[in-house]
């Protein structure tokens, strides 16, 4: 029982990321409204960012900015600082997310101008005609 408890608690960062990811993916596939698809896309990307950032965490570690001053120089204890690499990678992913969101919204505005709606089934009707 305790094992199971530790197992669930010890990895709840992954559970959170996976649940968010599935919600986002469901929105992207199943929603009829294109704007909701875009919202799903944002949730999906946020889930992956959460996943990466949680990789970088170390128990008891602080942010990866060294304590420094002129003249004072001591050996750096790597265990005392969080892993910087996932943060760097996610800065990129955030930027990519913002860019994709901007482009998707621009296309959405154009779709509204051409078809007069952003509901997928109504758009398909106007294309068939």
């Amino acid at each position: 029982m305790e094992d199971l408890f530790n197992y669930i608690i010890g990895r709840y960062n992954y559970w959170a990321a996976i649940i968010l990811l599935l919600i986002g993916l469901y929105g992207m596939i199943a929603k009829n409204n294109l704007l909701k698809k875009v919202i799903g896309m944002t949730i999906f990307q946020a889930a992956i960012i959460l996943f990466y950032v949680s990789i970088g965490d170390k128990r008891g570690a602080t942010i990866p900015i060294l304590d420094h001053g002129h003249g004072t120089h001591q050996a750096i204890e790597a265990a005392a600082y969080a892993n910087p690499l996932p943060h760097v990678l996610m800065l990129t992913a955030i930027v990519v997310g913002v860019s994709t969101l901007g482009v998707a919204l621009a296309i959405l505005q154009k779709i509204y101008r051409v078809h007069g709606t952003i509901e997928e089934d109504e758009i398909l009707e106007t294309i068939d005609q």
């Binding site: 992207m28 990519v96 998707a104 959405l108 154009k110 779709i111 051409v114 078809h115």
Partner: peptide, 16 residues
């Protein structure tokens, strides 16, 4: 535009 939107959604799923 609509075709491109579908591509954005699919492309983002692929990239993610």
């Amino acid at each position: 535009y609509y075709a491109t939107f579908k591509y954005i959604i699919m492309g983002t799923i692929g990239a993610c």
